[in-house]
């Protein structure tokens, strides 16, 4: 209790009143007059002052608690409250409850704000700040904040979408390159195979050509042989016929005469 404290001032007032009473009574005593009612009043006033001193300390006690709590608020802390508030609804206890109510509004406002911001940054966009039970500017503040959060959530969602799309794109490009590479490989394999196939085909054709020409050759030879044989047989038949029965006297006769019993084998025809 300092010299300027409320408690000191009220106590000083009471005690000065008592002191004045005491001075008056003592003056009477000194003058030799014993005024019993005065003495009794004096004692009562002293007793009242003593009780008042005790009472005023109790009545003003919440102010010290209020000071602590409000100092904390000034430091940005909203978790202290005034407790053990007297049941008698005097101005000071009402003031304490009002301060508590104010802190409940402030504390809830900041908790709601903190929680909804944190949840939103964690992607839980559904966790909006709840303004129910908050009053006036606190409620309005959270409502505005929710609009902001919705906008932020939208932006975040679209940023996520863009990021995802670009990742898909990168994935595609990576795949495209490797796909191209593997297609190139495949193409090479195919080309190689085609080349082999082509050369095989060429080979086959050549073989076929060769075999065809050899077949032709064979056929030619065969037909040559057949032609020759046929013409030879015909020729032989004709000459024999002519020699035997063609010109009597000359052919057969001469034949018979020259080679006796043997048929003369004619000379090979010129065209064979």
């Amino acid at each position: 209790m300092t010299n300027s404290s409320l408690q000191f001032k009220v106590s000083a007032l009471m005690w000065s009143f008592s002191a004045t009473m005491a001075a008056a009574t003592l003056t009477d005593l000194a003058l030799g007059e014993i005024n019993m009612p005065m003495v009794i009043f004096m004692l009562i006033v002293i007793a009242l002052s003593a009780w008042g001193q005790w009472a005023i300390r109790r009545w003003l006690a919440p102010l010290a608690k209020l000071t602590v709590v409000i100092d904390e608020v000034a430091q940005g802390k909203f978790n202290s409250r005034v407790i053990d508030i007297s049941e008698h609804k005097d101005e000071i206890s009402l003031l304490c409850w009002s301060v508590n109510d104010m802190l409940d509004q402030l504390g809830t406002f900041f908790r709601e704000q903190e929680t909804s911001f944190r949840c939103n940054s964690e992607g839980k966009f559904y966790r909006q700040a709840m303004g129910t039970g908050l009053h006036g500017g606190f409620k309005k503040g959270l409502e505005n904040q929710n609009i902001l959060l919705l906008g932020m959530a939208d932006q975040k969602r679209s940023a996520m979408r863009t990021r995802m799309l670009s990742r898909v794109h990168t994935l595609n490009t990576d795949k495209l390159l490797s796909n191209l590479f593997s297609s190139q490989q495949d193409m090479k394999v195919i080309t190689d195979n085609m080349e082999r196939l082509a050369s095989l085909a060429k080979q086959t054709r050549e073989d076929a050509d060769e075999s065809r020409s050899s077949v032709k050759d064979v056929v030619q030879r065969l037909s040559g042989i057949v032609e020759r044989r046929v013409s030879w047989i015909l020729w032989a038949a004709c000459t024999r016929w002519w020699k035997c029965w063609g010109s009597p006297g000359t052919g057969m006769m001469r034949c018979k005469t020259k080679y006796s019993m043997h048929w003369r084998v004619p000379r090979k025809p010129v065209w064979a």
């Binding site: 978790n79 409250r81 409940d104 504390g107 809830t108 129910t132 039970g133 908050l134 009053h135």
Partner: peptide
């Protein structure tokens, strides 16, 4: 009530 809340710590 609609615009009240119960607070406890």
């Amino acid at each position: 009530r609609e615009d009240d809340f119960i607070v406890s710590m």
